[in-house]
Design a protein around this nucleic acid. Structure first.
Lengths: 155, 155
DNA sequence: GGTGAAAGGTCATTAAG
DNA sequence: CTTAATGACCTTTCACC
């Protein structure tokens, strides 16, 4: 069901130095290269590893402002058409339906506070959305991480 | 300052098929291999590409419950000791200081709703935290994405 | 374990800002 | 003049059978 210590060490190693290959991993972990390959294959097919795509930093692209916006949805509209509307806005990085009276929480980025206003205007410019409440992120105290969780799952 | 169309197409290609190499990218994009390498190096050193680490799916590790928790911080404590406390909890995937009266917003995962209670108890078991308000994510309407933003930045 | 194939580096040339 | 792209060559290293 879950993962073991070798899986966790393998993932930590790849997170640390993503460009090293399977052979190099086997040397660092003192196991056969076939073992590393088998572990990686299993982790991938089980969905633990989604992929090795490039991680983009929105701030480096000029989108230095992050905000969390809670949307109140009109009951007459479902979530899906609203989600479809949000999906068309590039600055909406993710969106979740949350507990409460038909609400959505989404993460939005913008080039500046003024630009954030433009993005929010575009978000709420849809009749299914009744109200939006915006929370601006001032500082990133803990950047997105999963490694501690991997270690936790292995123990 | 920003990126151009070739950068965007390169990032989209790598996001789509992460396992292809530099040479394959150059063939797909009809440019020289050195060009692809130079673009990737520049994107990396400018911080646009943070890395190529494995993307871990917490749900596949058994942490299927996601929650957003807003913490109210006692003014006598700074944010930093609270952030240090949160950093020790593996289930806290990220944390931001947000606008408002000394608050923090963090993303938390747990194995179940019952397990979420345990995690939140651990989070609030710190004297610098006055109050916690929890929002549970019911469904992922838009999974985390950056590609639309990359296209936006390139245009 | 062996083999075909890439990665990564350097170079000279050419083009464009 | 500076920056970028190109094709060529080379050596090391890896992935796959």
């Amino acid at each position: 069901m879950s993962i073991d210590s070798l899986d966790a060490r393998l993932l930590a190693l790849l997170a640390d130095e993503p460009r090293i290959g399977v052979l190099e991993c086997s040397r660092r972990l003192r196991v056969a290269r076939g073992t590393v390959q088998a572990r990686l294959d299993k982790l991938t097919e089980r969905g633990v590893v989604r992929g090795f795509g490039p991680e983009i930093d929105p701030a480096a692209l000029g989108f230095g402002v992050t905000a969390f916006v809670t949307l109140e949805i009109s009951q007459r509209y479902g979530h899906d058409p609203v989600a479809a509307h949000l999906a068309e806005i590039p600055e909406v990085l993710e969106a979740y339906t949350i507990t409460g009276s038909g609400d959505l929480l989404c993460r939005i980025v913008a080039r500046s506070n003024a630009d954030l206003q433009r993005v929010i205007d575009r978000v709420v410019g849809y009749e299914g959305i009744v109200r939006a409440s915006t929370i601006i992120a001032l500082a990133e105290q803990i950047p997105y991480r999963t490694m501690p969780l991997v270690r936790e799952a292995a123990s």
